[in-house]
Design a protein around this nucleic acid. Sequence first.
DNA 1: AACACGATCTACT
DNA 2: GTAGATCGTGTTG
Length: 197
Amino acid sequence: MRRDSKLPRSFYDRPTLTVARELLGKHLVFVRRGVRLSGKIVEVEAYIGEDDPACHAAPGLTRRNAVMYGRPGFSYVYFIYGMYYCMNVVTERKGFPAAILIRAAEPDEGIEKMAASSPKIVRHLLLSGPGRFCRSLGLTTSHSGLDLLGDRLFIEDRGASIGQLVSTPRIGINKGMDHQWRLFDGSSTSVSAQRRK
DNA sequence: AACACGATCTACT
DNA sequence: GTAGATCGTGTTG
């Protein structure tokens, strides 16, 4: 596709909620073994600073969350529950820990490859849910800390739009429930399971 | 060195 | 609706 549509560093170097809102409708691309795998982002969650109790940076700087304290526009992938990976996009200036969890996308390029990684998952749900998203794409902690302005993992603006912006509390956490920092496209059938308010 | 738990998903009742 | 899988990470001793 068009290489000039790759999002610039300045896109990520802004308030996290602004970046999160604008990430919806953009296409995330992962080049695996020279093959493009991609999907249109339809669901994200924002984790902002050490004062956000649900953010991995709440305990302060550690080996694991270090990339969140770095420059914006890098990937942060972590391992959870002994078997899943979750991918985030680092935002805001160097020194301020914040990131956006990619929770779901609508499969686009490389759907057959994704299906091979996640057999018996319906097409439109191959990238639905943070764990499945990484599983279907083949993303692991070895892909953490990658520059999203590089050629292996990046996000493109293809001018796509989303149906309807919806915000709810974040899922799967027991702290920081006072914020509506989960954003998704209410008209997409690829958004992860729980849709309650 | 030992321990409790987690930004999840699937299978099963 | 709920339990089980399965292990890196941060904390405590």
